[in-house]
C-alpha cells in the first residue's frame, strides 16, 4: 500500500520552476527524507502533498486515493511548518488540543487531555502545558508544533525542517525520539531537511532534489555509496566528496568513459609509506575527527585523518587513495560505476 504518491508533478511560480516532473512514491510506514539545498523545491513538494499548493499538472495520491483536486482538510495529513505556526495567545495545551477538536474529529475532553499529556511528555514540554506559546523559547515552540502534528493519527506526516531551530543536543535526542515514534505509530513521514546527517540517520530512503527535480531516491547506504550524479554525491557526506578528473593522481583503472572520479575523504590515507607527494594546507580539529585540506599536483583534497595521526599545516607527506572505493562519473556527471559494488 502506498502512503503517498506524486506522479509527473509540475509546479511553477511565475517564471520560477519550483518542481519539475517530479514522481515519487512513499510506502505506508516509510520514513522518506527529502534532501536538497535552499531553493531546491523541498517545501513546495510538501505543500503539494498537503494540498496547500495545487500542481500545474500531474497527480497526487494520499493513502491510495487521488486527492489532486482536494483541499488540505480532506487529505488527512499533518504538517509541521518550517516556521512554528502556533496559535498566538493560547496555551501549549490549547495548541496541542486544537487538532483534536476540529470538526469531524471531535474527541471527548478526557481523551483529549490524555492524548495531549502523552505527547507533551514525549516531547518534554509536559511542564509547559499551561504556558502561553508566546512565552516559550524557539526550541519549545518547535516542539509544540511537532506535537500538534503527532497528537493526530493522520494518513501522512509532512515535516519541513522541524529540528532546524533546536540546539545540537536536543536535535540529536529528538531525532532518535522521532524515529522511535515513527516505528511505534507505523507512521508514514515525508521529512525535509538540508542536513545530511539528519537524512542519513532518519531515512528509510533519501530523495535528493536539485532545482525541482528528483535526482535520486534510494536507501541512505545506496545513496552514499552509489550516488546517481556528482550533485547527489556532494549532498551526502561531510566533508564533501572530492571530485577529481580521471587520470590524475593515478586514478586510471576506471571504466573507459569515466570523466571524473569521486573520492570520499575517509578513503584517503595520509602519512602513507608510498604514494603521491602532498602538502597539508590546513587542519581542522572537530573533536572526534580531524579533517585535513591537502594539496597534491595542484589539486586540493579533503581527507579524514585516522585517529592518532597529528598533522600541522605546511607539513609535507605522502597520501594513498583507496581507489577500490572510488566512484566514477561520465562527462555528464552521471554515475558509471563505483568500487563498492565492483
Amino acid at each position: 500500500m502506498a502512503g503517498a504518491v506524486l506522479e509527473n508533478v509540475f509546479k511553477t511560480f511565475g517564471e520560477t520552476v519550483a518542481v519539475e516532473n517530479l514522481s515519487l512514491s512513499v510506502d505506508h510506514g516509510e520514513f522518506l527524507v527529502l534532501l536538497g539545498p535552499t531553493g531546491a523545491g523541498k517545501t513546495t513538494t510538501l505543500r503539494l502533498l498537503a494540498g496547500l499548493e495545487l500542481p500545474d499538472s500531474g497527480k497526487v495520491l494520499v493513502a491510495d486515493a487521488d486527492v489532486t483536486a482536494l483541499p488540505p482538510a480532506a487529505r488527512d495529513v499533518a504538517f509541521v511548518f518550517q516556521q512554528y505556526s502556533l496559535y498566538p495567545h493560547y496555551t501549549v495545551f490549547e495548541n496541542l488540543a486544537f487538532p483534536l477538536r476540529a470538526p469531524g474529529r471531535r474527541l471527548d475532553a478526557e481523551s483529549i487531555r490524555k492524548r495531549v499529556g502523552e505527547i507533551a511528555e514525549m516531547l518534554r514540554i509536559g511542564h509547559k502545558l499551561n504556558d502561553k506559546v508566546t512565552q516559550l523559547s524557539g526550541g519549545e515552540m518547535q516542539r509544540v508544533s511537532i506535537g500538534r502534528a503527532l497528537v493526530r493519527k493522520p494518513n501522512l506526516f509532512l515535516m519541513d525542517e522541524p529540528l532546524s531551530s533546536l540546539d545540537a543536543k536536543l536535535r540529536e535526542d529528538l531525532r532518535v525520539e522521532l524515529k522511535r515514534i515513527q516505528r511505534d505509530l507505523d507512521a508514514t513521514i515525508v521529512y525535509v531537511t538540508h542536513d545530511q546527517l539528519e537524512a542519513m540517520t532518519l531515512a528509510d530512503r533519501i530523495g535528493i532534489l536539485q532545482e525541482g527535480r528528483l535526482v535520486q531516491i534510494d536507501t541512505p547506504r545506496v545513496a552514499y555509496e552509489r550516488p546517481a550524479t556528482v550533485y547527489a554525491a556532494q549532498r551526502l557526506g561531510s566533508p564533501q566528496i572530492n571530485i577529481v578528473d580521471t587520470g590524475k593522481l593515478g586514478l586510471e583503472d576506471g571504466p573507459p568513459n569515466a570523466a571524473t572520479t569521486g573520492i570520499r575523504p575517509e578513503d584517503i590515507t595520509v602519512d602513507a609509506d608510498q604514494g603521491e607527494e602532498a602538502e597539508i594546507v590546513a587542519v581542522e580539529h572537530r573533536g572526534d575527527e580531524t579533517i585535513a585540506l591537502i594539496e597534491v599536483d595542484g589539486i586540493r583534497l579533503h581527507a579524514l585523518l585516522d585517529a592518532g595521526i597529528s598533522m600541522e599545516a605546511g607539513q609535507r607527506t605522502r597520501i594513498a587513495i583507496r581507489s577500490e572505493y572510488a566512484i566514477w562519473f561520465d562527462s555528464q556527471s552521471r554515475l558509471i560505476g563505483s568500487g563498492a559494488t565492483g
Binding site: L52, P72, A73, F81, S85, P99, P103
Partner: peptide
C-alpha cells in the same frame, strides 16, 4: 498575520 497560520489551521480542519 502570516499565511502559514491559516494554512496550519486549514490542515487541522479548523472552520
Amino acid at each position: 498575520i502570516p499565511d502559514y497560520l491559516y494554512e496550519a489551521a486549514e490542515i487541522d480542519r479548523a472552520n
